[in-house]
Lab assay of single mutants.
Amino acid sequence: MLEGKVKWSNSEKGFGFIEVEGQDDVFVHFSAIQGEGFKTLEEGQAVSFEIVEGNRGPQAANVTKEA
């Protein structure tokens, strides 16, 4: 699992980007967020995730919010 911080997200469009130190930003779709209820990410929020190869390149999977 990698750790990063949410660079920005748009809940209306359903995606955002995660900033990882020393690496390119990672695309995240809201379907990759683990948990119940409305899935949102806040700018600056710490997250853990895996990287998978998506249709348009690397993207985050199994995203969990850190406490």
Rank of each mutant, 00 (worst) to 15 (best):
M1Q: 10
M1R: 15
M1T: 12
M1I: 13
L2F: 13
L2S: 06
L2Q: 08
L2Y: 13
L2C: 10
L2E: 04
E3H: 15
E3V: 15
E3G: 10
E3I: 15
E3D: 09
G4T: 02
G4I: 05
G4L: 04
G4P: 01
K5R: 13
K5I: 14
K5V: 14
K5Q: 07
K5Y: 11
K5D: 00
K5W: 11
V6I: 12
V6F: 05
V6A: 01
V6K: 01
K7E: 01
K7N: 03
K7T: 05
K7R: 09
W8V: 00
W8Q: 00
W8F: 09
W8I: 01
W8L: 02
S9W: 15
S9N: 05
S9V: 15
S9E: 02
N10I: 06
N10S: 11
N10D: 09
N10E: 02
N10F: 08
N10H: 09
N10V: 05
S11T: 13
S11K: 15
S11A: 13
S11V: 14
E12A: 14
E12N: 10
E12V: 13
K13G: 08
K13T: 05
K13Y: 08
K13D: 04
G14Y: 09
G14W: 09
G14S: 10
G14V: 06
F15M: 03
F15L: 04
G16A: 13
G16H: 03
G16F: 14
G16L: 04
G16W: 15
F17Y: 06
F17R: 01
F17I: 04
F17D: 00
F17Q: 03
F17H: 02
F17N: 00
I18Y: 03
I18E: 01
I18M: 02
I18V: 04
I18T: 03
E19S: 13
E19M: 13
V20E: 00
V20G: 02
E21P: 13
E21F: 12
E21I: 11
E21L: 11
E21W: 12
E21S: 10
G22I: 03
G22K: 04
G22C: 08
G22H: 03
G22A: 04
Q23Y: 14
Q23K: 10
Q23C: 12
Q23I: 11
Q23T: 07
Q23W: 11
D24L: 11
D24R: 14
D24G: 11
D24Q: 13
D24I: 10
D24K: 14
D24H: 11
D25G: 04
D25A: 05
D25W: 08
D25R: 05
D25S: 05
D25Q: 04
D25C: 09
D25V: 06
V26R: 02
F27I: 01
F27N: 01
F27A: 01
F27H: 01
F27P: 00
F27Y: 09
F27S: 01
F27D: 00
V28C: 06
V28K: 02
V28N: 02
H29Q: 05
H29G: 05
H29F: 08
H29N: 05
H29R: 06
H29W: 11
H29E: 05
H29K: 05
F30P: 01
F30W: 10
F30N: 02
F30E: 02
S31G: 07
S31Y: 06
S31T: 09
S31F: 06
A32F: 06
A32V: 07
A32N: 08
A32G: 05
A32L: 03
A32I: 04
A32R: 04
A32P: 02
I33E: 04
I33K: 00
I33C: 05
I33Y: 05
I33P: 03
Q34R: 11
Q34A: 11
Q34C: 13
Q34T: 13
Q34F: 08
G35H: 06
G35Y: 06
G35P: 05
G35K: 04
G35R: 00
E36W: 10
E36N: 12
E36P: 12
E36A: 11
G37A: 09
G37M: 08
G37H: 08
F38D: 12
F38G: 10
F38K: 12
F38A: 12
F38Q: 11
K39I: 09
K39L: 10
K39E: 09
K39G: 09
K39W: 11
K39C: 11
K39M: 11
K39V: 09
K39H: 10
T40M: 10
T40P: 04
T40E: 08
T40G: 08
L41E: 00
L41K: 00
L41R: 03
L41T: 01
E42V: 13
E42C: 15
E42M: 12
E42S: 11
E42F: 12
E42W: 13
E43N: 13
E43D: 08
E43F: 13
E43C: 15
E43H: 12
G44M: 03
G44H: 05
Q45T: 11
Q45G: 05
Q45P: 00
Q45K: 04
A46L: 14
A46S: 12
A46N: 11
A46P: 09
V47H: 01
V47K: 00
V47R: 01
V47L: 06
V47P: 00
V47E: 01
V47G: 01
V47D: 00
S48L: 13
S48G: 05
S48A: 08
S48V: 12
S48H: 12
F49Y: 02
F49H: 00
F49Q: 01
F49C: 02
E50R: 12
E50C: 14
E50P: 01
E50K: 10
E50V: 14
I51R: 05
I51V: 09
I51G: 01
I51W: 05
I51C: 06
V52Q: 08
V52Y: 08
V52C: 10
V52T: 07
V52W: 08
E53P: 10
E53M: 15
E53R: 10
E53D: 10
E53Y: 15
G54D: 06
G54K: 06
G54I: 05
G54S: 09
N55F: 15
N55A: 14
N55P: 15
R56V: 06
R56H: 10
R56I: 07
R56M: 09
G57T: 03
G57Q: 02
G57E: 01
G57V: 02
G57A: 04
G57Y: 04
G57L: 03
P58E: 03
Q59L: 07
Q59K: 08
Q59E: 11
Q59V: 10
A60V: 03
A60L: 02
A60N: 01
A60K: 00
A61N: 07
A61D: 05
A61F: 10
A61K: 09
N62F: 09
N62V: 05
N62C: 10
N62K: 10
V63A: 03
V63W: 03
V63F: 02
V63G: 01
V63K: 02
T64L: 11
T64W: 14
T64V: 14
T64E: 06
T64P: 01
K65Y: 13
K65L: 14
K65C: 08
K65G: 07
K65N: 06
E66A: 14
E66G: 14
E66Q: 15
A67I: 12
A67N: 12
A67H: 12
A67E: 12
A67K: 12
A67P: 13
